[in-house]
Structures are given as structure tokens and as C-alpha cells.
């Protein structure tokens, strides 16, 4: 495949160059750029939340190699279950499966069954770029445009033998080009949706204690702006 072919979008590829993301995620990821690969580390809900915005706008999504994917949670976050393809057990053929899906399916969520080789990574990255589709990888991916990870997470709603899980407050860090950004989110909130959990929300729920913030992260990265907004 020549370099020229990589840069030229194939015929019929839609022209809008970003896919929507949920409003709560916009401070982290303004929009999913078509043709990029996003790697997500930590948790089953973050990749689903990332795909929810595009799916709600009418994009087709596919989930490859994740038989444990909670479709109900995804649908509560905004993923349209009528536009969702599940390929639970692609086995060793996942690179082929993903390459087939990229293009007609605009967002592909992937958990590789084995550590991807450099060749596979390069080939699929080029494939995504060529077809203008977004590949969201649960796990490491060399040369990902954006890496998202959950830096800290705390569930609320459970007491000592009473209550039930209500919502989870997480700090999500996005690393890509430029400074890392961080945002506090309800992932999910008591209705199963994704909502922003800025400082105002924290003060309202005074009992919430933050734990486990990793020292390497700038917690204040983009927070003031987000709180002001």
C-alpha cells in the first residue's frame, strides 16, 4: 500500500471529519477524529462511553473480542443497540475481522485476544485512517492518537450491609499530543448515564473521598477550565 493511498480517503467515505462524543466527555475528547486509534486502559465502561456519542448520532458500532461487554450498560449510556454488531469470539482472526469492519462500521471497539504484533498494529492503524473509521482499543496500542485511562475510581451508594451501587466518580486522564487533560466524571451516574462530576458536584456530596490519584498525573491539568464551564 503506497503512502499516497494512505492519505487519500476511499470513495464514499463520509466527509465530516469528527464523530460526536457525549457532552460529559467533551472536555477530554472534543470529538473522535475519523481515522484515529484511541487506546483505553482500565475498565469496561470507558470504551463504551467513548462510543456512545457517535452511536447516538446514528453511527454503527462493532464490539470485537469482548464477550463480556455489558450491552445494557452501553445502551443506558447512549449506545443504540439497534446499530451494534457483536463479534464475541474472533479468535486469532481478529485483525482480519477488524479490517473488514473498519469503514462500513464507523466505531470499532476491540480487545485483541493476543498482544498485537507491530505489523498488525501498523496495518490496522493505516486501515482505520484510510476508511475514516475510529478504532477504540481496550489495552495498549503502539502509536495511538489518544490514550485514555481511569486514574481513580470510587463507587458510592454501598454501606456496610445496606444500600446499592448508585454511581461511580472517576477521574479520567487523556494523554495525546500536548499536555495531558483530566476530568472528573460520573461513570455511570445513578441512571446509568455519563455525567460531568466537577468540583461543584463533589462539594454537594461531601462524603465522597478521593483515593488512589496517581502521583504522576497532573490532577489540575484542565480542571479549572472545566469547573468554570
Amino acid at each position: 500500500m503506497s503512502a499516497f493511498a494512505l492519505r487519500t480517503p476511499v470513495e464514499g467515505a463520509p466527509q465530516a471529519d469528527t464523530l460526536a462524543v457525549l457532552p460529559a466527555l467533551q472536555s477530554l475528547v472534543p470529538g473522535l477524529r475519523r481515522g484515529q486509534v484511541v487506546s483505553v486502559d482500565g475498565g469496561g465502561s470507558l470504551p463504551l462511553a467513548l462510543a456512545a456519542g457517535a452511536s447516538a448520532e446514528g453511527a454503527w458500532c462493532a464490539v470485537v473480542g469482548m464477550p463480556e461487554c455489558g450491552v445494557l450498560a452501553a445502551s443506558n449510556m447512549g449506545v443504540d443497540p439497534g446499530r451494534l454488531l457483536l463479534v464475541d469470539e474472533p479468535g486469532g482472526r481478529w485483525p482480519e475481522v477488524v479490517a473488514t469492519l473498519l469503514g462500513p462500521v464507523e466505531v470499532v471497539l476491540l480487545r485483541p485476544s493476543a498482544r498485537p504484533s507491530v505489523v498488525e498494529v501498523r496495518r490496522l492503524t493505516a486501515h482505520a485512517r484510510r476508511h475514516g473509521a475510529v478504532l477504540v482499543v481496550a489495552g495498549a496500542w503502539q502509536g495511538a492518537y489518544l490514550r485514555l485511562r481511569v486514574a481513580s475510581s470510587l463507587w458510592t451508594g454501598l454501606g456496610d450491609g445496606h444500600g446499592h451501587l448508585r454511581g461511580r466518580r472517576v477521574q479520567v486522564v487523556a494523554e495525546g499530543k500536548g499536555r495531558p487533560r483530566a476530568a472528573w466524571l460520573w461513570l455511570p451516574d445513578p441512571d446509568g448515564k455519563v455525567a460531568s462530576a466537577g468540583l461543584a458536584a463533589v462539594e454537594a456530596g461531601a462524603e465522597v473521598v478521593e483515593t488512589g490519584v496517581e502521583p504522576g498525573v497532573e490532577p489540575g491539568g484542565e480542571l479549572p477550565a472545566e469547573v468554570a464551564g
Partner: peptide, 10 residues
Amino acid sequence: PLPAPAVVHP
């Protein structure tokens, strides 16, 4: 009750 879990083991 809601919220639904994001990982449901087959």
C-alpha cells in the same frame, strides 16, 4: 437495580 454493570461475564 440500575446502573447496569459494564462487564457481564458470559
